[in-house]
């Protein structure tokens, strides 16, 4: 398809935005930036040019500059545009200014509460700050407003898995919905693999991870999941996989509880041993140290051994 004439690009924000996105997709950042700046020069009172320029700068990783452009160019001209506030929130999130990002996103929602993507982006922010339950509720609300966001179904599946891992079948439904909408999403295939792994459907999980790697050979989630499955096939690593899955089902607090509880058991057993029973004390210490070594050191050692057979393992 040929590029639209430059005059029409500079007259229509929609066309200019489309062209800029196409340029960014093929790595032509400087040309995209020039086009946005030309648009601003031709339409000095429009906020759209500054918004697109901020997008280009953000794409190049210049978040501070992008935020300045957006605040001075777009926000000053369109203070009641929810999309400007949403974009500002995303930039603040990139800069790690979470509270301000939340304020900006909530302002966007206040300006247009019925626009699903406003809630979806806010859900992403909440998720990145480990507020999984709030993120899940917000994501579900966003989906009730705009059910066609495939990536949000995937995010919901992942959040459901964190919040309520026992109900993994609901996660499976969510991620399969995402895959029906976009079968080419490596992320969705990886999340499906993760969900199936949690459900003990190892063969299907392996297929999902492999599908993800076919679409995106460097997909970290899929590589991690597949390595877990490979370990599970070896007699040597099976107990480790069982232990890892058990800990993963318990969640972070539960994992800490297990380690702490075993330490408490060890300490109590040592304290209760009669004086002079050195061999029993040594046995207890040996068992406990073995457990610690298993927990802390078995993973890198087994990974190193496995890498000799499976070089693709990370």
């Amino acid at each position: 398809m040929s590029e639209p004439p430059r005059e029409s690009l500079l007259a229509s924000p929609g066309q200019m935005h489309g062209s800029v996105r196409s340029l960014l997709e093929v790595g032509q950042v400087e040309r995209a930036k020039q086009l946005a700046m030309d648009f601003i020069a031709a339409n000095p009172d429009s906020s759209a040019g500054h918004q697109v320029l901020a997008e280009v700068l953000s794409h190049a990783g210049h978040y501070e500059e992008a935020l300045r452009t957006l605040e001075e160019g777009s926000l000053a001209r369109a203070p009641d545009d929810d999309q400007v506030h949403l974009q500002r929130g995303s930039l603040l999130q990139e800069l790690g200014r979470y509270r301000e990002a939340e304020d900006a996103m909530r302002r966007a929602i206040e300006l247009d509460p019925s626009w699903g993507p406003n809630h979806a982006v806010y859900a992403q922010l909440l998720s990145s700050c480990d507020r999984d339950l709030e993120a899940l509720q917000r994501a579900e609300h966003a989906l009730s407003l705009a059910p066609d966001m495939a990536w949000l179904h995937t995010m919901r599946a992942q959040l459901l898995l964190y919040v309520n891992p026992r109900h993994w079948t609901i996660s499976e439904d969510a991620v399969r919905t995402a895959l029906r909408m976009n079968p080419q999403s490596a992320q969705s295939h990886s999340v499906l693999g993760l969900v199936l792994l949690r459900g003990g459907k190892n063969a299907e999980a392996e297929e999902a991870f492999r599908a993800a790697l076919r679409l995106e050979p460097s997909d970290r989630l899929a590589i991690r999941g597949l390595s877990e499955l490979v370990k599970g096939k070896s007699l040597l690593y099976r107990p480790m996989l069982w232990f890892g899955q058990m800990l993963s089902r318990l969640g972070t607090d539960g994992q800490l509880g297990v380690l702490f509880g075993l330490w408490a058991l060890y300490g109590a057993a040592r304290a209760l041993l009669p004086d002079g029973n050195q061999s029993a004390a040594d046995l207890l210490t040996g068992t406990y140290l073995g457990f610690c070594a298993y927990t802390w050191f078995a993973e890198p050692i087994t990974r190193a051994i496995l890498k000799r057979h499976y070089p693709w393992l990370e």
Partner: peptide, 20 residues
């Protein structure tokens, strides 16, 4: 808007800004 959704208000007030 979904009837059962209740906005809990801002929840990141105590999250510190990221520093490297």
């Amino acid at each position: 808007m979904r009837a059962d959704f209740v906005d809990p208000g801002p929840v990141l007030a105590r999250v510190p800004n990221a520093r490297r």
